[in-house]
Amino acid sequence: MWSLSDEALVAGLAAGDQGAATAFVRRFQARVFGLAVTMVGDRAVAEEIAQEAFTRAWRHAGAYDARRGRVTTWLLSITRNLAIDHLRAKRTEPLDPDAIGDAERAMWATAARSAATPGDGETDELRAMLGDLPGEQRRALLLAALFGYTAREIGAIEQIPLGTAKTRIRAAMRKLGRDTPGRDDERRRGGMR
């Protein structure tokens, strides 16, 4: 059970196999919880989000399509959406640009030096490309991707015009999208462990 591919575990999850469900949670819990903590910054809330992410994945396991993405990114996307729902519901107060800017920089600093976690090798290439981006583009991209901020909100955080915020996000995505050859092959290959 523990050596099955990610896709096989999802198939087991969809079939109602309890062993597969336990193995699935064990394999991904650190990633899911880590993303939730990174995004919401509160371990108790992150735990609720992580649990809900696994429940959603379990309910929708039958609809998972390996051609559209790896299991890890599928599960983390579910986690991200839940965390963003939580963050957006909280965003009734005016943005504090300094606090948010600090959170983003801390996030990037942690990601940039993190290499010890098992499986982190898969992000080396992406981390290197992010490191090559101009700082303001990287910041705008991470604020959007990891914290769900819109271009308008990023404009307020960075104290720049809306058009400039959009330009930074688009330029960063264009570069990452253009410079990632082989990503599709990697996705199709799946994750045998």
């Binding site: 880590g34 995004m39 990114t73 992010l130």
Partner: peptide
């Protein structure tokens, strides 16, 4: 581009839950 956005999520450091 969506696959790029998805891969960015892998940058968040893994952390053991309680």
């Amino acid at each position: 581009l969506s696959s790029v956005a998805d891969e960015l999520l892998l940058l968040a450091p893994a952390q053991e839950p309680p």
